[in-house]
Computed example of a mutant assay.
Amino acid sequence: MLIRYATLDDLDLIAPLFAAYRVFYEQAHDLPAARAFIAERLSLRESVILLGQDDAGAALGFIQLYPVFSSIAAERIWLLSDLFVSDAARGQGVARALMSKATQHARDSGAAWLELSTAHTNRKAQALYESLGYQLDTVYRYYSLGV
Rank of each mutant, 00 (worst) to 15 (best):
A20R: 02
V23E: 15
V23P: 08
V23W: 02
F24R: 14
F24S: 10
Y25G: 07
E26A: 14
E26D: 15
Q27Y: 08
A28G: 04
L31A: 03
L31I: 06
L31G: 07
P32G: 03
P32E: 04
P32F: 05
P32C: 06
A33C: 07
A34F: 12
A34C: 14
F37D: 02
A39H: 15
A39N: 06
R41I: 02
L44R: 14
L44W: 09
R45C: 10
R45V: 05
E46L: 13
S47P: 05
S47W: 13
I49G: 12
G52C: 14
Q53I: 03
A56C: 11
A58G: 05
A59Y: 07
G61Q: 02
G61D: 01
F62V: 01
F62I: 07
I63L: 08
I63Q: 05
Q64M: 15
Q64S: 12
Q64Y: 12
L65S: 04
Y66R: 05
Y66T: 04
V68D: 11
F69H: 15
F69E: 04
S71C: 09
I72Q: 15
A73G: 09
A74V: 05
A74G: 11
E75R: 15
E75S: 14
E75T: 11
W78R: 01
W78A: 07
L79R: 09
S81E: 11
S81H: 15
D82N: 06
D82V: 00
D82H: 03
L83S: 01
F84V: 02
F84L: 06
V85A: 04
V85K: 02
V85Y: 06
A88W: 06
A89L: 08
A89C: 04
A89V: 02
R90S: 08
Q92D: 08
V94I: 07
R96C: 01
R96Q: 15
A97M: 08
A97W: 03
A97E: 07
A97F: 05
M99A: 10
M99G: 09
S100D: 09
S100Y: 10
K101S: 11
T103A: 15
T103E: 15
Q104T: 14
Q104A: 13
H105T: 13
H105N: 00
A106T: 08
R107H: 09
R107K: 10
D108L: 09
D108Q: 14
D108P: 09
G110C: 14
A112F: 15
W113I: 00
W113P: 02
W113Y: 14
L114H: 10
L114V: 02
L114W: 07
L114R: 08
E115S: 14
E115C: 04
L116Q: 06
L116W: 15
S117M: 01
H120N: 11
T121R: 14
A125P: 01
A127H: 10
A127M: 01
L128H: 10
S131M: 06
Y134F: 15
